[in-house]
């Protein structure tokens, strides 16, 4: 099973590498979000205290900044806050495409070719998930570098280990989300339906999470959703690693985030494999 999975994953990755245009297109959206939305929203500017007020209440600006920093998980720079969240969103976008590729393979008849071959059905799904994770991780690194160039300010204790932590959290998120989208689209035959489903899930998953705004500021019902959203957990962990400062690192909280992500990834890869056994057939 492993050999077939590797061979099929190679195919997917080759297809992707040979289409640099597609790669470029997929990067445009997150970069636009970062550039336009992330840069336009200046948190500290929002609460800048006029000098005469500051004279009356010395230390008010520091207090306000502290408040913002508490709300935004340890940074007053919205761009940094959002860039960290955006990494999870990129993983979400890439995972959506893994669902598309099954529909393409079905439509072009490539899937039939795989189904006639003496290979385990699971290897077909695993290769799709695998290549989606590889794509996701690559884009995460790319966008992370771009965010750095745009002025992302990591915590003063940020190091290589934190980078690995970021990748590990996003890896789990990518595994779970790719499996989830594949499980949903496995039996769908038209692109239109897949795009509709993806759009339906895409925006709610992005907004009902801490990717763009802190959960605490949301209305309660939205908080409930956001608290079940894996993107929030990945967002938390990624942010904790990126903002790793000398002041401290809440290891216990990050451990909880990881627990959730591991369970999420496991459940959905199993669901994906189970659905592959029954759902991956002709017609």
């Amino acid at each position: 099973m492993i050999k077939e999975t590797i061979a099929l994953t190679k195919r997917e990755v080759k297809k992707w590498v040979k289409n640099p245009f597609l790669l470029f297109m997929m990067l445009i959206q997150p970069v636009i979000w970062l550039g336009l939305f992330g840069k336009a929203f200046n948190l500290s500017g929002l609460v800048s205290v006029p000098p005469e007020v500051l004279q009356q209440y010395p230390g008010l600006d520091v207090a306000l900044n502290q408040m913002i920093s508490n709300t935004f998980g340890g940074t007053t720079d919205y761009f940094t806050y959002m860039a960290a969240g955006m990494l999870s969103v990129i993983v979400l976008f890439t995972a959506m495409f893994s669902g598309m590729s099954v529909v393409w393979d079905r439509r072009f008849g490539f899937l039939n070719k795989l189904l006639v071959a003496p290979i385990p059905r699971e290897s077909i799904v695993l290769s799709k998930v695998g290549s989606s994770v590889i794509r996701g991780m690559f884009q995460v690194l790319l966008v992370f570098s771009i965010a750095f160039a745009f002025g992302l300010k990591p915590g003063n204790a940020f190091g290589i280990l934190d980078l690995f932590g970021v990748l590990a959290a996003l890896f789990l998120l990518s595994l779970g989300l790719s499996s989830m989208f594949l499980a949903i689209t496995m039996r769908i035959k038209s692109h239109e339906t897949v795009i509709a489903v993806a759009n339906l899930l895409n925006l709610p998953l992005m907004f009902a999470s801490n990717a763009l705004f802190p959960i605490k500021q949301m209305p309660e019902w939205l908080q409930t959703i956001a608290n079940f959203n894996p993107i929030s957990y990945a967002g938390n962990a990624v942010r904790a690693f990126i903002l790793h400062s000398n002041a401290g690192f809440d290891a216990a909280k990050v451990a909880l985030d990881f627990q959730f992500l591991i369970v999420f990834a496991l459940i959905f890869s199993l669901v994906g494999i189970l659905i592959a056994r029954t759902g991956l057939r002709k017609g």
């Binding site: 080759k14 040979k18 289409n19 072009f108 008849g109 039939n112 070719k113 006639v116």
Partner: peptide, 16 residues
């Protein structure tokens, strides 16, 4: 394991 299928659709991968 013992059959080969040359399908009606062209299923070879354009990108490879």
């Amino acid at each position: 394991g013992i059959v080969g299928l040359v399908p009606q659709d062209i299923t070879v991968d354009d990108d490879l």
